[in-house]
Amino acid sequence: MGITNIYNIIEPKDMNKNALLQILLSVQDADPRNYVSEENINQIAQMLNVSRSRVYTTASFYSEISLKPRGFHLIRVCSNAPCENDGKAEILKTIEKTLGITIGETTKDEFFTLESVNCLGACYMSPAIKIDDQVYGNLTPKETIGILKNIMEADKHE
């Protein structure tokens, strides 16, 4: 993995310094491991004619850009007060136990990565988590296990 053919995802005309953040996001989305690899940082730097450090400074600032390979599914647990007050800790513990990983880790089979996230704008249904692009709210530990099981099942049939 690692090197993406950037022109497959970004039009040459859009390849300019100002678009760096969108380029990084697109490169991350196109990578099966959901991250921006060092090879890609170098490649972007070369294409934009800037230094690697210049690309890295932007990439390393944003918490939704990962510089480490991640799993196929991203589970993000909201960590802000409305969710914390409504049982975030139990939800997190449930996920940790079910998958055997803690925040920042990826399962051995590279299926799941667990991360924490800031308010998902779903505080009216706290505690909330997000798996890939889907937000789940009003969670109980039991429901959480169900959701994870469903995802694992669905993947098996693919």
Partner: peptide, 20 residues
């Protein structure tokens, strides 16, 4: 304009170094 040192990461993690 050599572009070696930049401020990377954020908050108390900030580091002024080359990339990585």
């Amino acid at each position: 304009q050599v572009g070696i040192l930049f401020t990377h990461y954020r908050s108390t993690d900030v580091q002024i170094t080359p990339e990585y």
